[in-house]
């Protein structure tokens, strides 16, 4: 059974979203709605954990790009963490790793 499970948790001003399953044109709209409902404000942080993501297609990338733009406009920090190898490769090939992935101190 394909599909996407989205869980959200707030820790102070950080909203953590954990994705499990497949992020494609069928499931992306649901993630899009979930992310749009999260409160965003200057100084907040939105972290999306990709470790359980078995698949991510271009609809998924679109959702991340839209969410990032909305977050930046509100002054909210936005980052993806723990992409599994195929998602990591996709982010690397599309050059989005530099803008979407969390920057580790050694990268700075």
């Amino acid at each position: 059974m394909s599909g996407l499970r989205i869980t959200t948790a707030a820790e102070g001003t950080t909203h953590r979203v954990v994705l499990t399953g497949e992020l494609d044109h069928e499931t992306a709209p649901e993630l899009e709605r979930t992310l749009a409902r999260l409160p965003q404000a200057a100084g907040h942080r939105l972290v999306i954990d990709l470790s359980g993501l078995a698949l991510c297609d271009s609809s998924g990338l679109t959702t991340f790009i839209v969410a990032r733009e909305r977050a930046l406009a509100a002054g909210t920090g936005f980052e993806l963490t723990a992409p599994p190898p195929p998602v990591s490769r996709m982010l690397r090939v599309t050059g989005l790793d530099r803008v979407l992935l969390a920057r580790h101190p050694q990268d700075a």
Partner: peptide, 14 residues
């Protein structure tokens, strides 16, 4: 072409 970014998604794409 490491670092090349998709076109149209970012204002200052590299």
């Amino acid at each position: 072409t490491p670092g090349g970014q998709l076109v149209g998604a970012l204002p200052d794409a590299h």
